[in-house]
């Protein structure tokens, strides 16, 4: 399996895929790959948890298998199911093949991940699933094997790289956390966010990217109900770009603020405080950043 032989090569690999990692995350991902342990990533919405798995898969040149969790998800959605129509046909046709064999097995993401060597398995928003599913997952994650009663034990030749994300809408079980490496992704600092914006949106002008990020960074201090994540920053910058602006102006900001803030109270609060002052402040900050060597902004 094509791996990374040092933390730095991992970082370069991810950067090439336009995903900037700080050194904490790089170390942890590197260790997860090396120790073949699942990695549990938590963080505010929009800090790029899901994106991490996607990028890692493409950096590794490995297939990405995604399991989106939701309330009520069970073995038949996550692991395997039987191909009922074919089974019925087989029965009616009086075929001799056993009905509960691999031939009629429908692989769901978890089983698929065992079958494909070196795959990256993304278990997204595990906190949405219920306790029962978490308990089931525990078994899967510790041995990378599952038992299908009618078929037998299925085992991975090479365990997949597992990335689990959670928004912390509830606490995950300690037992599950123990089996994983853990990392909390924070909102990036200003320089880093500008670097991310430039990497992700190369068509957006440097000036606009700087201003948007400075504006958002400042908002995050406001203690809003729903702080904008990196995803929203990118959306907002893109919104300005699509509208043909290459710097923030208050009329456009006013109209596009909904890309950034998604709570009525937050919107009202920011509007009441006045956008102009904020924009001015963001411009100053972005200017300062540019003057003080924005080139090595990735650091």
């Amino acid at each position: 399996m094509p791996g990374f032989d040092s933390i730095d090569t991992l970082r370069t690999g991810l950067t090439r895929e336009r995903y900037l990692v700080d050194e904490g995350l790089a170390t942890v991902v590197f260790l997860a790959l090396r120790l073949k342990k699942p990695l549990l990533v938590e963080g505010e919405p929009g800090v790029g948890k899901t994106e991490l798995a996607k990028t890692l898969a493409s950096a590794l040149g490995a297939p990405l298998i995604r399991l989106q969790c939701y309330e009520g998800i069970d073995v038949h959605h996550a692991l395997y199911d039987w191909d009922y129509p074919r089974q019925l046909l087989q029965l009616r046709a009086g075929g001799s093949a056993p009905l509960y064999s691999e031939e009629f097995l429908v692989r769901r993401p978890l089983l698929e991940a065992l079958a494909q060597p070196g795959a990256v398995l993304l278990i997204d928003e595990l906190d949405r699933a219920d306790d029962e599913f978490e308990a089931f997952l525990l078994e899967f994650l510790s041995d990378f094997q599952v038992t299908i009663p009618e078929v037998g034990v299925m085992r991975a030749e090479e365990p997949p790289t597992v990335i689990i994300t959670s928004n912390r809408t509830r606490d995950l079980h300690e037992a599950l956390k123990r089996r994983c490496l853990y990392h909390w992704i924070d909102h990036p600092g200003l320089k880093r966010e500008v670097a991310i914006a430039q990497a992700r949106l190369p068509h957006v002008s440097e000036r606009l990217a700087g201003q948007v990020c400075a504006f958002v960074q400042d908002l995050r201090w406001l203690d809003l109900y729903r702080s904008p994540g990196v995803g929203e920053t990118l959306d907002w910058a893109e919104a300005f770009h699509v509208l043909g602006r290459d710097s923030i102006d208050s009329a456009t900001a006013e109209r596009t603020l909904g890309t950034l803030l998604k709570e009525r109270d937050d919107l009202e609060r920011v509007r009441q405080q006045g956008l102009d002052a904020r924009i001015q402040q963001a411009e100053d900050l972005a200017g300062k950043l540019r003057d003080h060597g924005g080139a090595d902004g990735a650091r």
Binding site: G24, T27, V28, E42, Y182, W184
Partner: peptide, 14 residues
């Protein structure tokens, strides 16, 4: 920093 993040990933759960 490497040792810090490794320890962080294994011992810190929230």
């Amino acid at each position: 920093r490497q040792v810090y993040w490794a320890a962080h990933a294994t011992f810190v759960h929230s």
